[in-house]
Design a protein around this nucleic acid. Structure first.
Length: 802
DNA sequence: AGCACGCCGACT
DNA sequence: GTCGGCGTGCTC
C-alpha cells in the first residue's frame, strides 16, 4: 500500500481524475486517505487530497509525494465518498466538490520564485533585478517587463531555477502562557533570597507560589502593571516558564447565555416527535417533513430530538438559512447545549470559521448550527440532521458545486442510518408531494404553543385606492393603522418585497431608459451617490441631467425602493421614527443585529425592510405588519413565483402578535384575486398546495418534472446560438420521447459583462442516464471551452432560471 | 489551469 | 542572431 491516489488541485475537466504517487518511507506510517499532500505535477508543485492507498499502479514511474500537510485526515472516508457523489450528482469537478467541504483557510496558495544557481555574473538586466539577492519572487520579474527569452536561456543554462511553493496558510491563534518552572518549595526559597530592588519580580513570583496554574502572560502583566521584561527575567532565572497555547477565537460569549431546559411538549408536538425519537433510537434513516405554522414550536422538537442524539453519544447537524442565523436563534441552541455547539455562518471571519470547524474535527462539540455548507461538518457518528425553513432557496448553492443541502443531507442520513428532519411553515411543493406519496413521513403542527390565533390578514386592493385618487404607496387603511399603532406605542413592521432599494431612470419625453453598455439590463439609480449602477458588472455612471437620446430635461425616477418608502413615510407620518433594513444598511458586519436590537429596544416605531425581515423576528410589541406590494414578485418570469409569494406572505404574517397583543396584517396588492395572495391570507397551505400542484402539472414543472438548465455564454452572439443549437440537437438524439428540450432561447438577462447568454431547459420525468449524456456533450465542447473562452454551465434542479 | 516546447515570422 | 506570439499537448 505504498501508492497514494490523489485528486490534485487543478480545476480542469481533463484533470478530473486521480493521479498516482508513491509514498516515501517517512510518510508510510502516517499518511491516510483524507489528508492533504503536496505533489509534483508537471514542473509545478501543487496541493492534492489523498483519496485512497493502493499497492499497484498502471503507471511505470511514479513521482514521490513531497510533503504531507495534515497530521490527521481533514476529510473522513464518508466525506471523500460524499465528495465523489456530489461531483457526480452536480456535474462538477471532484476537486471543487472536495474543497467545498472544507473551510477556506485550508485552501492552498501557490507562489513562484526565481532562484539564483550560480555565482557567475548573470546577463545585465537580470543581475540588476536580483540586486545581490539569492532569490526573488517571480512577480518581480514579471513586473520588471524583461525579456522572457533571456530568462528561458538562463534557466536552460542552469544559472537560474524556478521554484514552486505551496503555502497552506493556517492561522492558529496562540497565547503566551506563564507557569512556575520549579516546585513550590524551591520557588519559596528563591523568593526569600530575592534582591529587594526587584520589587515587581518578587510580586510576580509571589503570585506563582500561591497559584501554580498557568495563566496568560497578558494577565500577569495587567495584574502587576509591569512589562514582559519582568517575566523574562524570571524565566531567565529558571523560576518561570513560558509556552504558547492555542486558543480558539470565540465569536459568541458563551458565559452570558442563560441555560434552558426542555419545555413541556403539547399534544401535537408529542405526536410529531415520537416517530423522530423512534428513528433515532432504532438507527433508521427516515425523512420527516415537519409542517408547522409559525410559533408552533418546531424548534423545541429539534432541541429535544438533539438531546436524545447527544445522550446516545452521537452528533447533530442543524441547518438554518443564513439570514436566520441571528443571535436569537443561536442562543436557543447554545442555551440548551452550551459549549457543545459550534456555529458556522458567513458573518464569521475566515479564522473564526476555521476554529469552529476544528472544534468539530476534534470532536469537541456534538452539535453544529450553520448555513448551507455546515452540511459537510466532519462528524463521524451523525445521529440526526435537521433542516429548518426547508423551503429556503439559500440551501441551493448557486456556484460550483451546485448542490442542494437537502439532497446532501439525505445522502448523509443514509450513510449514517439517521433521521433527516425538514421543518417549515410553508414546505416546498417538492417536499410536500413526497410526503403525500409516503416517501417522507409527514407531521403537522396546526396550533401555536401559546394558543394565540394567527393574526388576521386584510387584503387591500390598490387598484381601488388608485380609483379613489390615492396615488401614494400607502393605502388609506395602512396609513391609519400605522398612525393608530404609533399612538398606542406599538410597533410596525413594513415589508417592501423588492430588492430594489433604488430605482431606474427614464426620460418622460421619449421613454429612453439608461441601459448598461455591457449588459442587457437597465441601470439602477443610487441616491446616496447620485449615480446609475449596473448590478451585474458594477458599471457606473453619473445620472444624466438631460436625456442622452432627445436632450429633454424631464428625467423621471421610477420604481419604489426602501429608500423611497422611507422618505414617503417621513413625509406622510412625520412623527414616526423608522429603521430601515436592506442590503444597503446591513452591508457591514454586525449591522444586521444592531438594527434588530435597536428595534427590539423600542428605539423606533417602524421597521422597514426587504425579505430579510420576514424571517425569525420575534418582537413582543409588533402588532401591525404591512406588506406594501405583495405582487411585485408574482410577475417575475419564474415558475416558482406563486410559491415564493405564498411563502413570503405567510412568513411575514407570522411576525405580528406573537405574544400578548393581537396582531394585524395588511397586504397591499394590485391582484387581490390571485390565489397565492388569497390563500396566504387565509393560512391555507393545503389548498395552495393543491392549486399550485395543478399548475405545475399543467405546465410540466417540478415536482411533476425534473429540470436541467444549460446556459451557454460567449462574446460572440452567433457562436452562442450555434453552440446552443448543437447542444439541443445532441440532446434530442439521446433523451426519451416524453422528455422536453426547450430552446435555445436568450436568458432572462441576454447579455452580462459583454457576454451573450442563451439557455436551454430540459424537462424530464425519467432520464437515469441524463448525467452521462450531459457529460458526453460537455466533453465534445471541451476544446471550444478551453481555447475559445466558451462557457457551458449545467444546473440540475435549478432555483434561479437566469 | 499552467507550463514547456516548438514553430513561425519580424526585426536587426 | 534575438526576440515575442501563439498553437499543442501533457501533467501520475
Amino acid at each position: 500500500m505504498n501508492i497514494a491516489k490523489v485528486i490534485v488541485d487543478v480545476p480542469a475537466s481533463s484533470i478530473n481524475q486521480t493521479f498516482d504517487y508513491s509514498i516515501p518511507e517517512r510518510f508510510q506510517e502516517i499518511l491516510k486517505p483524507g489528508m492533504r499532500v503536496i505533489v509534483p505535477f508537471g514542473p509545478r508543485k501543487i496541493m492534492g487530497f489523498v483519496v485512497d492507498r493502493v499497492s499497484e499502479s498502471s503507471f511505470e514511474r511514479l513521482k514521490n509525494i513531497i510533503d504531507v500537510l495534515d497530521l490527521t485526515p481533514v476529510l473522513t472516508k464518508e466525506l471523500l465518498d460524499l465528495g465523489k457523489w456530489v461531483a457526480n450528482e452536480t456535474l462538477s469537478l471532484s476537486i471543487v466538490a472536495l474543497q467545498a467541504m472544507l473551510p477556506q483557510v485550508l485552501k492552498s496558495k501557490y507562489k513562484k520564485e526565481l532562484v539564483r544557481m550560480t555565482d557567475e555574473k548573470l546577463p545585465d538586466p537580470l543581475e540588476y533585478l536580483f540586486a545581490g539577492r539569492d532569490f526573488i519572487a517571480y512577480e518581480e520579474f514579471e513586473n520588471a517587463n524583461l525579456s522572457y527569452y533571456q530568462l528561458q536561456k538562463a534557466v536552460q543554462a542552469g544559472d537560474l531555477s524556478v521554484h514552486y511553493q505551496v503555502q497552506s496558510k493556517v492561522t492558529k491563534k496562540e497565547v503566551l502562557m506563564v507557569k512556575p518552572a520549579r516546585e513550590t518549595h524551591m520557588m519559596e526559597e528563591a523568593f526569600i533570597d530575592f534582591p529587594k530592588n526587584a520589587k515587581k519580580q518578587k510580586q510576580v513570583l509571589g503570585y506563582f507560589i500561591e497559584n501554580t496554574h498557568p495563566i496568560p502572560q497578558k494577565e500577569v502583566l495587567k495584574q502587576f502593571q509591569t512589562t514582559n521584561q519582568t517575566v523574562k527575567s524570571l524565566v531567565d532565572k529558571g523560576l518561570l516558564e513560558t509556552y504558547k497555547e492555542e486558543v480558539y477565537r470565540n465569536p459568541y460569549n458563551d458565559e452570558e447565555i442563560e441555560r434552558t431546559t426542555a419545555l413541556e411538549l403539547t399534544e401535537e408536538q408529542q405526536q410529531a416527535i415520537k416517530p423522530i425519537l423512534a428513528s433515532i433510537k432504532n438507527n433508521t434513516h427516515d425523512v420527516f417533513l415537519l409542517h408547522g405554522v409559525t410559533g408552533s414550536g418546531k424548534t423545541e422538537i429539534y432541541l429535544q430530538s438533539i438531546q436524545d442524539v447527544i445522550d446516545k453519544g452521537e452528533e447533530a447537524i442543524v441547518l438554518v438559512p443564513e439570514i436566520a442565523l441571528t443571535p436569537q436563534m443561536v442562543n436557543r441552541f447554545k442555551g440548551r447545549f452550551g459549549k457543545s455547539v459550534a456555529v458556522m455562518h458567513s458573518a464569521l471571519s475566515a479564522g473564526e470559521k476555521y476554529d469552529e470547524w476544528r472544534r468539530i474535527h476534534r470532536k469537541e462539540v456534538q452539535v453544529v448550527v450553520g448555513a448551507r455548507s455546515a452540511i459537510f461538518a466532519p462528524f463521524e457518528n451523525l445521529g440526526i440532521i435537521i433542516i429548518d425553513e426547508e423551503h429556503e432557496t439559500t440551501y441551493k448553492q448557486e456556484d460550483q458545486p451546485r448542490y442542494h443541502a437537502r439532497d446532501v443531507a439525505i445522502q448523509r442520513g443514509q450513510n449514517h442510518n439517521c433521521p433527516v428532519v425538514l421543518g417549515s411553515a410553508t414546505p416546498t411543493l417538492e417536499s410536500y408531494a413526497r410526503a403525500m406519496k409516503g416517501v417522507y413521513s409527514l407531521a403537522t403542527l396546526n396550533k401555536r404553543t401559546n394558543d394565540q390565533p394567527m393574526p388576521h390578514v386584510d387584503i387591500i386592493d390598490m387598484r381601488a385606492e388608485l380609483h379613489a385618487g390615492n396615488r401614494t404607496m400607502f393605502s388609506r387603511k395602512l396609513k391609519e393603522s400605522i398612525e393608530h399603532c404609533i399612538r398606542n406605542k406599538e410597533q410596525v413592521v413594513l415589508l417592501l418585497n423588492r430588492r430594489g432599494y433604488s430605482t431606474f431612470v427614464m426620460c418622460r419625453d421619449c421613454g429612453h431608459v439608461n441601459d448598461c453598455p455591457h449588459c442587457d439590463i437597465a441601470l439602477t439609480y443610487h441616491k446616496n451617490t447620485n449615480r446609475l449602477k449596473c448590478h451585474y458588472c458594477s458599471y457606473e455612471e453619473i445620472v444624466p441631467s438631460i436625456c442622452p437620446e432627445c436632450n429633454s430635461d424631464l428625467i423621471r425616477y421610477f420604481g419604489t425602493g426602501t429608500q423611497r418608502v422611507e422618505e414617503a413615510i417621513t413625509e406622510l407620518i412625520p412623527e414616526a421614527s423608522l429603521l430601515r433594513m436592506d442590503v444597503d444598511t446591513t452591508r457591514r458586519k454586525g449591522s444586521h443585529e444592531k438594527i434588530l436590537k435597536e428595534f427590539g429596544e423600542g428605539k423606533a416605531d417602524i421597521l422597514l425592510g426587504t425579505q430579510m425581515i420576514a424571517k425569525g423576528l420575534d418582537f413582543e410589541n409588533v402588532t401591525l405588519v404591512g406588506v406594501l406590494t405583495a405582487d411585485s414578485m408574482l410577475n417575475l418570469p419564474d415558475f416558482r413565483s406563486s410559491e415564493k409569494t405564498f411563502q413570503l406572505l405567510t412568513q411575514v404574517s407570522g411576525r405580528a402578535g406573537r405574544h400578548e397583543l393581537t396582531g394585524q396584517v395588511l397586504v397591499q396588492t394590485y391582484t387581490p384575486e390571485h390565489y397565492s395572495v388569497k390563500l396566504a391570507s387565509e393560512y391555507n397551505f393545503l389548498e395552495f398546495y393543491k392549486k399550485e400542484m395543478g399548475m405545475r402539472k399543467k405546465f410540466q414543472y417540478p415536482p411533476y418534472y425534473f429540470l436541467a438548465l444549460i446556459t451557454i455564454t460567449h462574446e460572440n452572439k452567433v457562436k452562442v446560438i450555434q453552440t446552443a443549437q448543437r447542444i439541443v440537437h445532441l440532446l434530442l438524439q439521446k433523451v426519451n420521447q416524453n422528455t422536453v428540450v426547450l430552446g435555445p432561447t436568450p436568458s432572462p438577462i441576454p447579455r452580462i459583462k459583454d457576454r451573450y447568454r442563451y439557455q436551454c431547459m430540459i424537462k424530464y420525468r425519467n432520464e437515469p442516464d441524463l448525467r452521462v449524456y450531459l457529460n458526453k456533450i460537455l466533453d465534445q465542447f471541451s476544446d471550444d471551452v478551453r481555447k475559445n473562452n466558451l462557457i457551458i454551465s449545467v444546473d440540475l434542479q435549478p432555483y434561479h432560471l437566469m
